[in-house]
Design a protein around this nucleic acid. Sequence first.
DNA 1: ACCTGAACACCGTTCAAGT
DNA 2: ACCTGAACACCGTTCAAGT
Lengths: 202, 202
Amino acid sequence: MEQNPPEGLSSRDRILWAAASMLGEHAGSALSVRAVAARARVSTGSLRHHFPTQRELMETVLPMLYDMVLPEDSIHESSIPPRERLIASLQRQLAPSGVDQRPRDDWRLTFERYIKDEPTEAVRAEYLAIDRELHRRVEYVLTVLENEGSLAKGDNARRARFLLTVVSGLSIAQVFPNEGRLLQNELEVLGTAVDWVFDAQP
Amino acid sequence: MEQNPPEGLSSRDRILWAAASMLGEHAGSALSVRAVAARARVSTGSLRHHFPTQRELMETVLPMLYDMVLPEDSIHESSIPPRERLIASLQRQLAPSGVDQRPRDDWRLTFERYIKDEPTEAVRAEYLAIDRELHRRVEYVLTVLENEGSLAKGDNARRARFLLTVVSGLSIAQVFPNEGRLLQNELEVLGTAVDWVFDAQP
DNA sequence: ACCTGAACACCGTTCAAGT
DNA sequence: ACCTGAACACCGTTCAAGT
């Protein structure tokens, strides 16, 4: 149970390491200040010095976790568990440009171009092409996992439709008013969707 | 701020009155044992005697509140299979006003009010209240299914978060350009999500 | 600047003791 | 059976004090 942080790390990095390792073990569960501080071998005060609120800690740690598996080719890195690779690849579709003000701008453009008014045939075709590309990418990732034996053979088109609906719901949630549990919620919901892909019997 | 319960009520009913009135005032905020007990003018121990856990209190109070709002709901018609009832109830959230041109208008208003610009605190609170109400309704439906034994006991808040993310993704898909498989796709994806709820082992 | 640990104001739950 | 209130083991945050 008791784990020690790697040596030679700064306090701040030990805190991040502790938080990341705890999230890795039990994703979605809330991190308590004292538990993280204990594993990082620092005081709660030190933790609060680097991360004034628990939310700031989460918002620093979670993007780091994603960034670790973000590169496209990481889908082939079989050192990373298949579940995490699929989550990372979906996360890429969800937040291709960061977690700041950008999602709102993205949605504003998207809304104005494809939704606000009945689109022209050309605009319609453009959107359908983008949408197919998204599906193609997810299906590709699923195929890779199938081929290496991590995932049971199944209807990958259907799986992709389901996963991308979830991603779409999470994406729009990013720009609605929310109560600050956004990233935790994303992790939880994506994890649930991915569990279905891996566990459902066809 | 200090309110007194109606006279002549039993302790148990004063507790329910207190919890209901607090949910009504500040919907969504968690109910603390001590706050409810104080308003009900009983001790925390008495509250725990009637409601051994905070969850049991919530699960007694919430259905009471709902029955006041939506008494007619096919969710209780046990002649219909539980899976279908859950799907039907989610479909109601998805398309409360029909499946024609309306979704586009709905989304246009929603987008303009809550997303386009950084909302004021009042608008933000308004959205959060609506969102919590949606979650509460789904949780209520899940509770009904649990109580009749159709659904394994589980974390209904988490289940609702997942289901409503899926509903949200389907809702925005209604207004994007599509290839006409919309309804088929909705049923497939909703079915998948509902399967997870019924089949996943916790 | 970085860090400590006590202190504060919460939380849900448990329980010996009363009626 | 019903009720009390103290006690326990948590939580996030604040802060005077050290280096």
